[in-house]
Simulated scan of single mutants.
Amino acid sequence: MIGYQQRILRALGALAILWSLAIPSAGRAETPITVKGGETVTIAGVRSILIRAAHPKGSVILLTGGDGRLEVGSGARFGKAGDNVLIRNRDAFVMHGYNVLLAELGTNLSAAVDHMAAIKRPVIVIATSKGTQRAAEGLIGGATPDRLVLTSGFLSKASGPDDTVQTILGTPNRLPRTLALHHREDRCRWTLPAGVLPFQTWSGGRVQVEWMSGGQADEANPCRSSAHHGFAGQDEEFVARIVKFMMR
């Protein structure tokens, strides 16, 4: 009976995480977005959107937060997560000279890395919020990106949840060279700043940490893209920090 109750509590906790991180789209349908210069591609049976840079320096794979769904359709259209910090900055990464893959939920990360590597290396996986869990699961599944960027990450148990990048990986040996980019005032209960240092220490030197501060707060829900959790009002600095790491 105790084990059953624990499973129920875990399930409720997981639902609470999804609700708090996906709440911007709750209660109303988002207007479908057509990605300028994009194309719908199918990788291991799942449709994602690819944007090609004119003279690429490399390729990035973007893993959104929340429930991970983009609802990719034909003609480079998607229906969800347009306000996510990574998805809304897709064109900025292209302008910096990187091919960009907007990865749909369920995309096999290993296959996606191979797909982008065939176009242009290095391949960098950039994940945010709950997407950092999916990035870790992809590494476990055999994905071998050249670099990894974790923003507002579920990094260690001090971040808030039990299922974190650290606990999913089990060992730092699976990490490529990694950047953890975090906001000092992130108040989302699943990505607390307190989780960053334990993760960096555990990594044994594989993780570089960058902190941001300022920007806009969302007091109604600190887990929204419109909060410090989503680096609201700081898109230019956010992209610049990541690009600087990718070019090293």
Rank of each mutant, 00 (worst) to 15 (best):
S20F: 08
F78H: 13
L102N: 03
L139D: 03
G131W: 10
S74Q: 12
G37F: 00
T151Y: 10
Q234S: 08
R47T: 11
R7V: 07
M1S: 14
K57P: 10
M95C: 05
S25D: 13
E71C: 01
W202F: 07
S25G: 13
T144Q: 09
Y98F: 15
A127L: 02
H229D: 03
S226I: 05
V165R: 04
Q216A: 12
A217P: 00
L21I: 04
P198T: 10
F154P: 00
L105Y: 11
G214D: 12
E104Q: 14
I140N: 10
I2W: 09
A136F: 04
H182T: 10
L169R: 06
A240I: 05
R177T: 14
L148G: 06
L109D: 00
G138L: 08
L70A: 01
G233V: 06
R121L: 05
E71S: 13
R121M: 08
V165D: 02
L63K: 06
R77I: 14
G153S: 15
S20G: 07
E210P: 02
I2Y: 05
R28C: 01
Q133S: 08
I2C: 02
R121D: 02
F199E: 06
I168K: 01
I17W: 05
K120W: 09
G142Y: 11
A29E: 15
E237G: 06
G66M: 02
T42E: 13
V165M: 03
E219W: 09
L86T: 10
T178I: 04
W202A: 10
A103I: 07
V100T: 05
D162I: 15
S25W: 08
A180I: 04
M246N: 01
L150G: 02
G215Q: 00
G37D: 00
